[in-house]
Amino acid sequence: MTLWQAKLLNRATRLRLAHRRLPDEARANLSVLDGVSGRALASAQRYVVVDLETTGLDHTKDRVVSVGAFRVVDGHIRLGEVFNEFANPGRGIPVESIKVHGITPDNIRDARPAWEVFRDFLTYLGRDIVVAHFARFDMFFLNRVMRAQYGMRLQNLVVDTVLMCRAALIEPDPYGQKKGAKRCSLDALAARYGMEVPERHTALGDALATALILQRLLPEMERAGWKTLGDLVRVAGVQ
């Protein structure tokens, strides 16, 4: 994935939706890549680090129950600009999932449906770059709602901390011998950096852990020679 590809896809989406009537937040989202320069420093970008909790891991039937996000600007995590909300999955929460994230049906009884939560999230996100750990998972759920609601994917750049970690931290493993080692899991990285992750397995707690890891990975990426936004998207960009 390159910045150029992302912009090309964005151009195609804009052409396709040119004559469609779209809500403001979706219209604004279509232009988030305008003026983004691949030569800008990656460490000086604005990021939104997001984590979703779901009713399970089956993407055909599971739904989002909680969205947590932190904004990272100039490498600083903004503790005041937090996004943290439950979403009503419209179905029951399996007991196994409750055990993981501790969200009970009581918590979500009064929560709004996912599309409304994501509508607010789009406003919160603005033009910032989305960061997630195993981003494909979170993006799948997010984009499913986006497609149903607006007929398009999220247009922001998306960066995966797992890919950053593989590129900058982990020695290459061409034969896949260490594949099962989970060397890039949140827990493994937290242990590597000696971090104590508060409120692990809540959407916001995991988002914070990911943000803390992003703070450390950005300088590591720089050390490895990937200094610009273009480099970052090429190495760790996800669609």
Binding site: G68, G80, V82, F86
Partner: peptide, 18 residues
Amino acid sequence: HGSVRLSCLRRGGMSDFP
């Protein structure tokens, strides 16, 4: 675009600071 400073916290029903 996204100055939602803490505004989303109230609805969640969690303790006050998340």
